[in-house]
Design a binder for these strands. Sequence first.
DNA 1: CATGCCGTGATACAGATGTACCATGCGAAT
DNA 2: ATTCGCATGGTACATCTGTATCACGGCATG
Lengths: 200, 200
Amino acid sequence: MNAKVEHEERRRQIAEALLRIADTQGLQSASMRAVAAEAGVSLRLVQYYFETKEGLLLDALARLGAQLQDRMARWIAAAGSPPTPRALVTAVLACILPTDAESRRIARTYTAYYALVLNDPEALAKHGTGQADLLESFLAEQLRAAQRDGGLSPARDPRITAAGLAALVNGLGQSVLGGQRDGEAALAILTHHLDELFDA
Amino acid sequence: MNAKVEHEERRRQIAEALLRIADTQGLQSASMRAVAAEAGVSLRLVQYYFETKEGLLLDALARLGAQLQDRMARWIAAAGSPPTPRALVTAVLACILPTDAESRRIARTYTAYYALVLNDPEALAKHGTGQADLLESFLAEQLRAAQRDGGLSPARDPRITAAGLAALVNGLGQSVLGGQRDGEAALAILTHHLDELFDA
DNA sequence: CATGCCGTGATACAGATGTACCATGCGAAT
DNA sequence: ATTCGCATGGTACATCTGTATCACGGCATG
């Protein structure tokens, strides 16, 4: 049916307007009216397609997660075929770092949500740990594969090393968003650490 | 003069009420009226001691920074006398990690400010890079000292390693606040990485 | 043709928020 | 004793926010 397709299209249009505002002005500026104006629709329509504001926020957050997953899939695909474990780890981590417009947008928007979700324990339980745990598991698995291939010292603990790498890129991303350094400097620090990890 | 002392005392009382709300409910819940109620004073007094809300937010942020600096000074003092460079690095990094009530409070409150400041470029320039750069410089200096003492391989780049450590603890802190793991697990990951750094 | 549902618009409403204004008490200085 | 400045209280005001309500046109189905 055509109506349903347009429905989803409208929801996407409105949710992405919200994400655009969250990126450029922060979530506290994303009022229903501001989202409506940004999306070029009336306030009533935002209400119509998302009954409540919480619904809109949650839907947009889900779309943001999908966008990040898309980006990661693209960077993984660009890691070569077949990719080495080291290439996969490098791709995934570098992909998260705010080095270009898209990753900066995603990082900034995630940060906007982060502070909001920290004081909402139930939303935290639902959306918080899932993606991050998945990332760390993936990294740990690739590190184990690298150990089997001899590209990584067997003395390293894959789980702990994976957690450290994930935390490192998150922290580096924060420093980039905070203006402490630019994306290239952060990437240089990351690759430096990866070199030390895989060459020792 | 007594009046001035009370003045500062009132400002402290009100600013700490703001920080308490930012910690427990987030900065978006820290309205003038909420701060007044939390501090046990009238709305008019909050206006009187801080002409504008922005002034209150900035003052409270400065106090938060001082509290973190105090905590770091205490942890440095507890690192032994004379402390080894490694002990200093460990103390400073572990002190930032949200492992007890105070550090969790500071980390949560900083996060609340973080999202707000990200979309205010001028405030970002003033408060953003200073503390973080200072921390990294301190860490780099201690790493150089460790290299002179033979406790750290001279092959490591102090600046890059210091930046990596700072980013690591920030990222670990994020994961703790997000509920991905508890403070002890984060501390275990940090000490594991420090062991690998200093023993290799 | 009539009916009724769906998308859309305009607007109303209640509450919150930052700030401004007026008033009052009180201690000190003239 | 009067005046003056500071600390404090109460409250008004304009604006914004999320949500609810009323209204209208179109289109399909009976």
